[in-house]
């Protein structure tokens, strides 16, 4: 019987049968650029608006993931998707074409982990055959909603982050063998330590990441050494530093196995300051970089803990602090062939 309130071991493992990442040109030039299944030539994709372009990116990621899983749209029981835009329009509008029973989710930049978490719970609980998890973000759509017009000449503070233009999708199923599989999930709590600067999202999210990781290791009995990688979504350099300090206070050391997608996706890319952010950041790195590596048996077990800053332009103007959330899933390699 389950005694913990945050961590759940799945009754039966849920396999990740197919995954795909589609990234924009700037992300393609970054150090992980060669990992993404598709890198677009521009960020407009011959569409009339950036919002439409973002939808196309999510659609492509979904198509590629379904193709890799060799699963058709008609077989999928749930589409779990979300994004950063108001009314999660990218996910909603993309779902018009997928013809899959749809559940829209919002977890800001933690959305990939949230969709994987819920999809795994549903399938493991015996509901549905396949679940499709997808998310995306686009620099130009996020920027106009949360910040300034693109052509506005302003200096960004050195701790600010750059929204990643990318989409990621994964197809979950209960019937698998050698594919990576989700074994545990950890549902995070909303944590707010009073950060009000919308430019410092790493600082706003680090406490949530620390809380979820501490809770996970306490409740599950796992130790950091059990993982090859402990992956955070988009804390950036500042947030990663803060996470390390917060965990140190509780004597938890992640060491070299900590990997922040936001830091790594733009490592060495000029003008991105503290690193990448956005739903597409952790989604593209997990689906483009980590899961294929796990399929090649280079990684045995990883903890994917994506964080989200749950702010809105309205709350920012009203000087409200920024709540953070962190959802986590444990992914293990499948049985050897």
């Amino acid at each position: 019987m389950q005694k913990t309130r945050h961590v759940y071991e799945l009754l039966r493992p849920v396999y990740i049968l197919g995954e795909a990442a589609v990234a924009g040109p700037k992300e393609g030039e970054g150090p992980l650029g060669s990992c993404f299944q598709m890198v677009t030539v521009d960020d407009m994709l011959q569409q009339k608006s950036y919002e439409k372009a973002e939808c196309i990116m999510m659609e492509r990621a979904i198509d590629l993931a379904l193709a890799e899983a060799v699963v058709s749209n008609e077989e999928v029981s749930f589409m779990l998707a979300g994004d950063l835009l108001n009314q999660i329009i990218t996910a909603n509008f993309t779902a018009r074409f997928t013809k899959i029973p749809f559940l829209g989710l919002y977890g800001a930049c933690s959305t990939m982990a949230e969709t994987l978490l819920l999809g795994s719970l549903l399938l493991s609980g015996g509901y549905g055959r396949y679940a499709l998890c997808a998310t995306s973000s686009h620099f130009s759509t996020a920027e106009r909603q949360y910040r300034q017009p693109l052509e506005m000449g302003i200096q960004r503070p050195p701790f600010s982050q750059w929204t990643v233009t990318a989409a990621g999708a994964a197809v979950l199923g209960v019937q698998g063998t050698h594919q990576p599989r989700v074994t545990h999930v950890c549902v995070g709590e909303v944590i707010d330590l009073g950060i009000t600067d919308p430019n410092n999202m790493g600082a706003a999210m680090a406490p949530a990441a620390a809380h979820t990781l501490l809770t996970f290791f306490t409740e599950s009995g796992f130790r950091p050494e059990d993982f090859d990688y402990i992956i955070t979504g988009d804390l950036g350099t500042v947030g990663s530093d803060l996470l390390r300090q917060l965990l140190q206070e509780h004597s938890l050391e992640l060491g070299q196995r900590h990997f922040d997608c936001g830091v790594e996706i733009f490592r060495g890319v000029e003008g991105t300051h503290a690193g990448g952010s956005g739903c597409g950041c952790s989604a593209s790195v997990l689906n483009g970089y980590f899961l294929p590596r796990m399929a090649r048996r280079e990684i045995h077990r990883l903890l994917f803990a994506a964080t989200g800053a749950l702010l809105s332009p309205t709350t920012t103007l009203q000087k409200e602090s920024i709540p953070g959330i962190c959802q986590a899933v444990v992914i293990e390699e499948g049985a050897a062939c």
Binding site: P158, F159, N200, A203, V238, D241, L242
Partner: peptide, 8 residues
Amino acid sequence: MVKQASPN
């Protein structure tokens, strides 16, 4: 802590 960690 944040002030310390955030570059000026």
